[in-house]
Computed example of a mutant assay.
Amino acid sequence: MKPDLLITTNGFQETWPAIEYGAWFAATLGKKITLLGVTENLNPAAIDDNHPLEDIFAQAVELFRKNGVEYTLIVENGNAEDVIPQKAREGEYIIVLGPLGRPQIRRFLKGRSIRYMMEEIDQPILYVPESRLPLKKILICIGGLGYEVTAEHIAMQMAMKSRAEVTLLHIVPPIDLDYPTARTVRENWQNLTATDTPVGRSLRQALEVAKGDGLTAFVKARQGNVVEEILAEIKDGNYDLLCMGSPYSTHALRQLYAPNVTAEIAEGTTCPILSARYKQG
């Protein structure tokens, strides 16, 4: 069963790029849309007032009809950080999110909502702070452990439909332990596809898939801090979409102390990000 889209909004105008991108995504890949509107802080005294959801729903319906996509509208009351993960668990979806417009003091005290969503939602997440369409350039981060496979698979479908150029990126981080595989990667970081290492094999396989689909594809490598180098590549390459695996692809203890790279990237760029946990099959 191919997943449909669950596009979410709390009426905040900055969620509109996610709706716009989701409509394009659904039309391009032939998916159905469920638009979830979350009514937050509903004041009984203002029951007859025009709610921001009404305007954004009206715009969305017009857009969905224009794109010829099948859609369903749902409205739930509550806190978006609670309602969205709960609704996501009720079906097989790709979740499309945008910034929820939280006050700066709340972001400082609790962190950004996207970080929490990545922890709570098992399904693929498409986070869209800015709609960069048409889709011409996709950046796929390859870590070498296979956690990016699900995100990579979705990205390749998007690339085929839009004929987007694909860049496969691996970051070689500072290495503290000197063991054979790490040494090979460090010494051959500019030609990783020629190495018999996990990342070398992952890059070759992804490159073969892309070229087998008739796509223009490249391999790039950078050295340094993973978050800083990915953000620098996004800026230098002017990409329209970033695709990454999720640290929650693994149940290893490492995710308890290692930084959530995907969340940190999402907080540092306006480029749309597709993140997905690895799943067998």
Rank of each mutant, 00 (worst) to 15 (best):
M1H: 11
D4M: 01
D4Y: 14
D4F: 11
L6G: 03
T8Q: 01
G11F: 10
G11N: 02
P17G: 08
P17L: 00
I19W: 08
A26P: 07
A27T: 06
A27D: 07
A27R: 14
T28M: 15
K32Q: 11
L36W: 06
L42I: 09
A46Q: 07
D49S: 08
N50R: 15
N50T: 14
P52F: 08
P52L: 11
L53A: 01
L53G: 07
D55P: 12
E62A: 11
R65P: 03
G68I: 06
T72A: 10
L73T: 05
I74P: 14
N77M: 13
G78Q: 14
E81Y: 08
E81A: 01
V83D: 05
Q86C: 13
Q86H: 13
G91V: 15
G91L: 13
I94V: 15
L97F: 12
G98F: 08
G101C: 15
R102P: 08
R102L: 10
Q104F: 15
I105L: 01
R107M: 02
F108M: 04
K110L: 05
G111M: 03
S113Q: 01
M118P: 00
D122I: 06
D122L: 04
Q123R: 07
P124Q: 05
I125V: 07
V128P: 10
S131K: 09
R132F: 12
L133S: 03
K137R: 10
L139H: 10
L139T: 07
C141I: 07
I142G: 04
G143D: 14
G143P: 12
G143S: 13
V149Q: 09
T150Y: 14
T150P: 02
E152H: 11
H153V: 06
H153D: 09
Q157D: 11
A159D: 03
M160L: 14
M160R: 12
K161V: 07
A164F: 12
L168A: 06
H170A: 05
P173T: 00
P173W: 07
I175S: 06
Y179I: 14
Y179C: 09
E187R: 01
Q190Y: 10
L192S: 04
T193D: 00
T197P: 02
V199K: 05
G200R: 01
G200A: 00
G200P: 06
L203N: 02
L203T: 10
R204D: 09
A206R: 11
L207F: 12
E208A: 11
E208Q: 11
K211R: 11
G212P: 11
G212D: 05
L215M: 11
L215T: 08
T216A: 06
A217M: 01
N225V: 06
N225K: 15
V226H: 10
E229H: 12
E229A: 09
E229I: 06
I234A: 01
K235R: 05
D236R: 14
Y239C: 04
L241K: 02
L242W: 01
L242D: 01
C243H: 04
C243S: 04
G245F: 09
S246A: 04
R254E: 13
Y257K: 02
N260S: 02
T262G: 04
A263V: 02
A263S: 10
E267K: 01
T270F: 05
C271F: 09
I273R: 00
G281E: 04
